[in-house]
């Protein structure tokens, strides 16, 4: 067990050191969310009125989008970190780790924790920008939001690790990013309400971990909102969101560790 903990720590430390070293990533981390706010949020909400809201619900699109922006930044950072093990395998460091006398599952877990740490740093910056979206946060609320974002990040990173472990080359990388990441995002209800979507879409969204993540974030952020507003925003009870999300972390974690252990 000591070996496993040490391994998790080592891989986590490597992710963290790399993150600190890459200035462009830190700049991107601050820049990207700002961009969401300015273009996606302000732009869209200025261009058109938010028509999806039922009468009597006083909600701006930016407010509606805010949990979605949080989820989006975590989604991108996490899936990218998970899939980056293909690079590691091709260009180096992973080979070194795979011949070390350590359990493979601990490597996958370390990777997921490292990615989540980075994702949470990014989310923290977004949380600091909450007033821009007219969202009021308290310190305990920030803690709860980060906890949910952490679960989302773990689930998505493990998904990335599982996919990357099954991929032989880097050629499929771009395809994965396009055909996996964007659907994950759109289906989650982060950008538009999923109340009036076709049945097939509604079925698919139930398999998207991000759906439950976004739902849980909305529960937290709009906890004090009018029941009618809340009913419009969320689809599942908060406890369901947490249970499903945790279940998905465990299942995807198991899959990620299993596939990762079996490679080479």
């Amino acid at each position: 067990m000591g070996t496993a903990i040490r391994t998790v720590y080592t891989i986590w430390l490597r992710e963290w050191l790399r993150f600190l070293r890459e200035r462009s990533r830190i700049i991107g981390m601050i820049g990207q969310p700002l961009l969401y706010f300015l273009i996606v949020g302000q732009g869209i909400s200025a261009a058109m009125a938010f028509r999806a809201a039922p009468p009597g619900v006083n909600l701006s699109y930016l407010q509606f989008m805010y949990p979605g922006i949080l989820a989006m930044s975590v989604l991108f950072t996490s899936i990218f970190s998970g899939i980056s093990i293909i690079w590691d395998r091709e260009f180096g460091f992973l080979k070194e780790v795979l011949v070390a006398p350590v359990p493979r599952w601990a490597i996958a877990l370390g990777k997921a924790l490292g990615a989540s740490t980075v994702a949470l740093c990014q989310a923290t910056i977004l949380l600091a920008l909450a007033p821009l979206a007219q969202v009021h946060l308290t310190l305990p609320l920030v803690g709860k939001l980060l906890a949910v974002l952490f679960l989302i990040s773990l689930a998505i990173t493990f998904m990335g690790v599982a996919i990357a472990s099954r991929m032989e080359t880097m050629e499929g990388f771009q395809m994965i990013m396009n055909f996996l990441v964007m659907p994950l995002y759109f289906l989650s209800g982060a950008m538009f309400p999923l109340a009036n979507v076709p049945a097939w879409m509604s079925a698919l969204m139930h398999f998207d971990p991000l759906t439950y993540g976004v739902d849980a974030l909305r529960h937290l952020i709009f906890a004090d909102a009018h029941p009618q507003v809340l009913a419009f925003l969320v689809h599942f009870p908060f406890i369901t969101d947490l249970l499903v999300l945790t279940g998905m972390v465990l299942v995807l974690g198991g899959m990620g560790s299993w596939f990762f252990s079996r490679q080479v």
Binding site: R14, G92, K95, E96
Partner: peptide, 14 residues
Amino acid sequence: IGIVFQDNSLDDRL
């Protein structure tokens, strides 16, 4: 055992 691989296996950002 210690291993030096045929291809680079260092983390070049570190």
